[in-house]
Design a protein around this nucleic acid. Structure first.
Lengths: 205, 205
DNA sequence: AGACTAACCGGAGTGTTCTCCGTTTTCAAG
DNA sequence: CTTGAAAACGGAGAACACTCCGGTTAGTCT
């Protein structure tokens, strides 16, 4: 009630644009983090070490990336853009052109690979607060994409919930258990997904 | 190769039975933890504080409960037993007697309440390592229960995977987002679950 | 150029989780 | 009751995530 009187009401996501030194440091930190990660895995990714390797104070790391999970998300975001293009505008069945049910299946299959490629990092990213895990980064896009596809196949259902329900089994945490602990191979997970999609969206034809 | 020669080969889960002081301390810790939890919520549940309140060294807390998530799991396990009895041998539709699809639906509905009742604690428990989160505590029972029900309705599918896929959307983390951040009410989540179950297991009739 | 301000920087400091190991306790066998 | 050893205890300390704030810098306005 005290803020924004009559003047410029700030547009929602309109941030003031980053200063030059801020940009420089963000890059330095990301590069250092990627390097440390390539070496000793996620454990090596202590933010003190990252700060030291980036020749920057810890405070700077936290201001740029909020917390450990924020850094993980930022690292993931780099490859995520390719993935987004693949399912938004790439070749079918992942991209447009194929029947929706096929695209859903292709999307979930691709997601398995995506998670598997950067297991440790995704695991860290998933430990973010729910508001962040599901409200920022890659998730909203993935969810929106699924909602769009589901609207074409089961329009009279709660597509919003169903989309979330289809994404949930692809958490890194569950996949880690199925693959590492249970010894399931990726192929059998794919076919499990196929079962799920066939049942929910019909045989596909 | 050095252990177990000819003598007593140890049975798999056969632990040596807890010593008297161990039992006493375990109880002291659990009571202290429950009390702190009732006061200041999960944040108050720092293990130093728990140890102090239980009049026990921190080392003892960690030996008895492995880590923070282990304590959360132990606290949850107390009420979990009632829940298990409800779906194993209670009245239908949750317990035996109703058609499998109805039991699945009732089970998932009950699970929403279960998670909601102890949101904070479940959130902590879910941050356990995958091997623990899915390999110990409540999860294996829930999964096994679903597998049993699914075998009666979709026997020619990968019921093991499907059971995991039905449990995944009921993570505290996702529910927290849907309820707290998105403002969904529990009723709409229930109906979302109904959509999911109807689609996968047929109309129910 | 000079001055002003908001954004940014660094790193010492705080609180917390978890480990390590010397000491103590339990309990069973003699 | 004594004795021996496995199990448990306690708490100092290491490691780490994250905060706070006095000092610095970039970018803007005159």
């Amino acid at each position: 009630m005290t803020r924004s009187q009559a003047g410029e009401l700030p547009v929602v996501g309109q941030r003031p644009a980053e200063r030059a030194d801020a940009v420089r440091n963000r890059r330095k930190i990301l590069r250092a983090a990627a390097r440390l990660l390539a070496d000793g895995g996620v454990e090596r990714l202590s933010l003190d070490d990252v700060a030291a390797a980036a020749e920057v104070g810890v405070g700077t790391v936290y201001r740029r990336f909020r917390d450990r999970t924020g850094l993980a998300i930022a690292l993931l975001d780099e490859r995520e853009k390719e993935f987004q293009q693949a399912f938004m505008s790439g070749p079918p069945p992942l991209g447009p052109g194929a029947p929706p049910a096929d695209r859903v299946r292709a999307f979930l299959h691709a997601l398995v690979d995506r998670v598997r490629d950067q297991f440790e990092l995704v695991l860290v990213a998933e430990s973010a607060e729910p508001a962040i895990r599901y409200g920022e980064g890659a998730y909203p896009f993935r969810h929106f994409h699924l909602v769009t596809l589901l609207r074409e196949t089961v329009p009279d259902r709660d597509v919003d919930y169903l989309a979330a329900a289809l994404l949930a089994p692809l958490s890194a945490s569950l996949l880690a258990h199925q693959i590492r602990d249970q010894g399931r191979d990726v192929e059998s997970i794919r076919s499990g997904i196929d079962d799920l999609v066939e049942l929910t969206l019909g045989g596909g034809s």
